Simulated assay, not measured.
Amino acid sequence: MSDDLGTLYVVGIGPGLPHAMTQRAKDVIQTADCVIASNLYQEFLRRDGTLPPETAADGGTATAEQGRPEQEVVRSSMGRQIELAREAFERVREGEDVAHVSGGDPNVYGKSDLLFLMAQEDEATDVPIEIVPGVTAALGGAANLGAPLSNDFCTVSLSDKWRGWDEIEEKLRAAAISGFVVVLYNCWRNYERAVEILREERADDVPVAIVNDAGRGDAGRNGEGRTITTLGEATEHDDEVAGMGTSLIVGNHETETWDNDYEQFLVTPRGGRDVDDF
C-alpha cells in the first residue's frame, strides 16, 4: 500500500449515540480528514464532540476546532450514495482518510456492500478499505429485552426494494421451520404479511418483542421503547411499528418471558441445559 494513500473507513456507529459506539469507531471519526454522514448521525455525533460543533459560516460542511485537525463533514443522503462513493475514492487517492458513517453495523443491511460494489465497478482496487463494526439493531434490541438471542437466530429484511416477496417469504418460512429466533428489519414494509407467514409454521403463543430505536433513548425519531406480545397478537400493534427504527424479535418454542421485580424479559435458553451444566 502506498504511503501517499489514505484509507476509506466504513464505520458502524450502532444506534448513533456516542455512548453506544466502539472506541475504534469514535477514534476513526475524530481523526478522519473527511466524514460522510447523514444529518441525523451528524447531530448524534456532535453531542459529545465526536464531531466538532457545526459552523454557520460554511453551512456545516467544513469544521475545525482548536487542538483538532481540520475536518470536512459531508452530508450523506440516499440519492447521493454512488456520487459519494466515487468522491471518497478520490479523496483517499489524494491522501485523505475518509470515514463513511453507517448506522448499526455496516455489514448488516448497511453500506459496506455498496462501497465494495462501487470499487469493483470503478476498478478502484488501489483504494484501501477497512470496515469498523458497530452494534446492530438485533443486538441492541436483544440487550434491551434480556436474552432472546442466546441460541441460534437469524435476521431477515422485509425490504423488497431489491428482491421480491417470494424470496422473502421463502426465507421467513425456512427460518420458522428451522427453529431460529427471527429478527425482522425494515418492518414498516409489510410486517403484517411477514407475521402471518411465520404463524403458518410457528405457534401463536411464542413471545414477540417490538423494539423501537434501540439504544437511542429519547434521541430517536420515535423514542426508545419496547412491547412484549405474542406472535398471534403481533399485528394488533400497528401504532408501535414506527418506521426504520423498528425491529421485531420473534421467539421460538423455547423462548419464554421472565419477570423480576423491575421489568419483563425474554429468554431463549442455549438449549437442553440447566444451571448444573455450567
Rank of each mutant, 00 (worst) to 15 (best):
Ala142Lys: 11
Glu90Ala: 11
Gln23Lys: 11
Met21Ala: 10
Leu248Tyr: 02
Gly59Cys: 08
Gly67Met: 04
Pro148Ser: 00
Ile210Thr: 09
Ile129Pro: 02
Arg199Asn: 07
Thr55Arg: 14
Gly49Cys: 08
Asp48Arg: 06
Asp97Pro: 02
Gln120Cys: 02
Ser112Asp: 06
Gly95Phe: 08
Gly140Leu: 02
Gly146Lys: 03
Arg202Phe: 05
Asp152Ile: 02
Asp27Thr: 15
Asn252Trp: 12
Asn212Val: 15
Ala56Met: 06
Asp160Pro: 05
Thr22Met: 02
Glu224Arg: 02
Gln30Glu: 15
Ala57Met: 02
Thr155Asp: 05
Pro128Cys: 00
Gln81Gly: 00
Ile129Thr: 04
Val156Phe: 05
Pro269Ile: 00
Glu201Ala: 14
Leu17Phe: 00
Glu130Thr: 13
Tyr9Ser: 07
Gly146Phe: 05
Thr61Gln: 09
Leu231Arg: 01
His237Glu: 01
Glu83His: 12
Ser157Ala: 12
Val206Thr: 10
Ala37Tyr: 09
Ser76Tyr: 03
Asp213Phe: 03
Gly140Ser: 08
Thr255Lys: 10
Phe44Gln: 09
Ser178Phe: 09
Val211Lys: 02
Glu167Asp: 15
Asp213Gln: 04
Asp126His: 07
Gln30Arg: 15
Gly110Lys: 03
Ala219Arg: 07
Val74Gly: 07
Ala147Trp: 08
Gln81Tyr: 05
Tyr9Gln: 08
Gly16Asn: 11
His253Ser: 08
Pro15Ala: 10
Pro128Ser: 00
Ile228Tyr: 02
Gly134Asn: 12
Leu8Ile: 12
Arg226Glu: 03
Ala124Cys: 06
Phe116Gln: 15
Thr246Cys: 15
Asn260Tyr: 09
Ile29Arg: 05
Ser102Asp: 05
Leu139Ile: 14
Val182Thr: 15
Glu87Tyr: 09
Gln81Trp: 03
Met21Val: 13
Glu201Gln: 14
Thr31Gly: 07
Arg163Asn: 12
Arg24Phe: 00
Ala209Lys: 06
Lys161Thr: 13
Pro18His: 03
Thr229Gly: 02
Asp204Leu: 13
Asn260His: 07
Val211Glu: 03
Asn252Ala: 06
Arg86Lys: 12
Ala124Phe: 03
Asn144Leu: 14
Val182Trp: 10
His253Arg: 13
Met1Val: 15
Gly49Pro: 09
Phe89Ser: 09
Phe180Gly: 00
Arg47Trp: 01
Val135Arg: 12
Glu121Gln: 13
Ala147Tyr: 07
Asp97Lys: 10
Arg270His: 11
Leu139Pro: 00
Tyr41Glu: 12
Gly49Asp: 08
Gly79Ala: 10
Gly251Cys: 04
Leu51Thr: 10
Ile249Gly: 02
Arg226Ser: 14
Thr255Pro: 12
Asn151Gln: 12
Phe153Leu: 03
Arg193Glu: 14
Glu94Phe: 01
Val98Gln: 10
Glu90Thr: 08
Phe44Trp: 10
Gly16Ala: 09
Ala56Lys: 09
Trp258Met: 14
Asn212Gly: 11
Gly272Lys: 11
Leu8Glu: 01
Asp97Phe: 03
Val195Trp: 01
Trp165His: 15
Asp27Trp: 06
Phe153His: 08
Asp160Ala: 10
Ile210Met: 08
Phe265Lys: 05
Thr136Tyr: 11
Glu70Tyr: 04
Ala138Tyr: 03
Cys34Trp: 09
